[in-house]
Amino acid sequence: MRCGEFHTSYAADMAIFDTRRGRHALAVFLVALFTVPFFATSYWLDVLNRAAIAVIAAMGLNILTGFTGQISLGNAAFLAVGAYATAFLAGHGVPFLVACPLSGLIAAIAGMVFGIPSLRLKGLYLAMATLAAHFIVEFTAVHWESVTGGVAGISIPSPSIGPLHFGDDRRLFFLIVPAAIAHLWFAKNLFRTRVGKAFVAIRDQDISAEVMGVTVFRHKLLSFAVSSFYVGVAGSLLAYQARIISPENFPLALAIDYLGMIIIGGLGSVLGSVLGAVFLTLLPEFLRILTGALSGSYPQLIQLFTPLKLGVFGLTIVLFLVFEPDGLADLWRRTRNWFRLYPFSY
């Protein structure tokens, strides 16, 4: 019977999995995840793909905001940069395996440019500076019609790797979900390295970090770059999945949604990014099913759906901030520990 965790070496302390059982559980989960496309309907695969894309974007934002402590309202803009880069590249015949990472790199450069004010600005001021990024990118997307297609939008050919075509959501699942897993794996390991630890040090106290020998500005910019790369790749996958993108795909509300995801999931937590992104992507679907089920007897409900979605989103954020400030990830950790150590937990 277990009653706690005891680590006897630094290696054990740094391990990703506390227990062998955790590793097995994850393996079982992944195997189960990849059987989903064989029975789910194409709409639910569309939802799952959108959730996986949101996971990558939320992970990216969490690296910047949750781990490095730099608030950003520009993530919808970086998503747009990634998506439009893909639209341009794919439209000129660049294959998926080149276009997707390249779009991430272009977004990373954009992120570094807009991250420069972080040298001088913190908190609310940085939020305003990154908000400017949002409006600049939006303006460009609307008016640079030769590249972005303007308000009418632009279509993207379906991705293919060699002879394999990923034309529908069932096939895209095998492209998007592994990409999400790879990005999570990288993020999880990033925070076991010196760079990752430096990010956390800056978040906790930037002056102490500087005193300890962390080059604050370089690491802030690096954090912007890594974060924007993630968001850019998410944008690229979004473009391939939606097949048509327009400035309407990247409203400011989306940037707020992503912040909501990492707050609900858990700031500074890889698992939190996953849980928050999945939770907020599925929330409107469940609301839709609920309003759909009730609209037989109350036909007016269909008009209430859109405002209801926003209302529930707001209420969820407030409730989480008050009752569960560390998010779903912490809720999960405590639940798991309670069961694992039952009945003799310290």
Binding site: S42, Y43, L45, D46, D169, A242, R243, E248, N249
Partner: peptide, 12 residues
């Protein structure tokens, strides 16, 4: 984007 999602749901 909402129309695209609705379209996918209706056809799929």
């Amino acid at each position: 984007p909402e129309a695209v999602a609705a379209y996918k749901r209706m056809t799929g």
